[in-house]
Design a protein around this nucleic acid. Sequence first.
DNA 1: TGTACATCAGTGAACGCGCGTTCACTGATGTAC
DNA 2: TGTACATCAGTGAACGCGCGTTCACTGATGTAC
Lengths: 217, 217
Amino acid sequence: MAIAGKDTPRERYRAQLRAEIKQHAWEQIAAAGAPGLSLNAIAKQMGMSGPALYRYFAGRDELITELIRDAYRSLADTIRATADSGADLAGLGHALRAWALDDPQRYFLIYGTPVPGYHAPDDITTIASEIMGALLDAAQLGDTPADTPDDSRLAAHLAEHREWAAGHPAPPSAVRRALLFWTRLHGVLSLELAGQFTGMGLDPAELYFSELRHLTR
Amino acid sequence: MAIAGKDTPRERYRAQLRAEIKQHAWEQIAAAGAPGLSLNAIAKQMGMSGPALYRYFAGRDELITELIRDAYRSLADTIRATADSGADLAGLGHALRAWALDDPQRYFLIYGTPVPGYHAPDDITTIASEIMGALLDAAQLGDTPADTPDDSRLAAHLAEHREWAAGHPAPPSAVRRALLFWTRLHGVLSLELAGQFTGMGLDPAELYFSELRHLTR
DNA sequence: TGTACATCAGTGAACGCGCGTTCACTGATGTAC
DNA sequence: TGTACATCAGTGAACGCGCGTTCACTGATGTAC
């Protein structure tokens, strides 16, 4: 769904080339991380001159921002589609992990080290809350697991601060479950993707799914 | 404690200037992240010419590697000192959080987005396992909390794969506690430092300490 | 259907910049007799 | 204590590089009469 889909041949060509540029951008990010992304390098890789890319993106910043947006969009769609197919948090956990392993640098583009100056545009923030919304919905299916005990202090805090959950009314226990789902799985996943378990002779997947069972049992 | 402490005036001056360079490097990382670190910029900031820094570091890579080493060293010392003062996991949790908030970019230098090519030298890996060792020691104090239930599958996996815990014999329950301490707190902490809770109207500290209580109650 | 014009993709040259790094050199500081 | 020498910090010029970005221009593609 393009922003202004005129669907003339030229427009189709444009859209395709934009996609191709992004494709090469992702490959470059996979190879050297986001800081190593270079417009000129992409152009060279595509067999064209550097300035040509300015027909498709206003500059490096716009390209990166769009990659970030696409990453969020992709994750939000994955989560939403999984949830809509009737999955509970367990299913979302599997989907999240698969999505992250599919392209670790894409995961880090969302949840990795922030660049001190950068502030994401509003529409990206919106997508981010879409993701939390889907988690909240899923967190209300099934019973609260017996082994995630009440924490009265946290419950009180969550009861007071929930303006962000607008459109997704949920009992505090579900809010808590959604948050723990997010932070705990991110904890294991991000350390795994960063290679922090290397040399421990331990399968991070076991840890991940143990956490997931703990959240959904 | 220098590597070869001759302690002549010149040596002292050298050590001091090395420290000063690192100081400016940290400020630059705090301002623009690790990728924005530049030798020439540091030199300019110190009022000297670029090549002068090559008296103190073989190059940019060596400086960065040393910063990473210092970061690990600082965290390991903090954890170890806290543990030696008789603290349990709860105390370590407070220390970890304080250490991370003190300089978020330093935290990310250790646990943030990895640079695809980079491989840390062996001695850094050694410091990393020092940290895990201290966690393992602390995880054996106190009782296993009632609300972290057994997970037979994970327990079995951990029982089989523990060569990394050499020098720190620990029952599987303690290993599990140490790992969960690490991954769960990192989960909350890294998302908080990255600003991912912004706009949720929610205090990440509440979440962090809730997790910590859950681990140590 | 053919012609005149507008639109647009892509090029090549150029600008200015900052980067890491080398090199030959100067001047100050320390060391040995 | 003074002199001769070695060590070392720091400079300035230079190299080569790649970056993002601009600009004037060419040639192809589409549009309007």
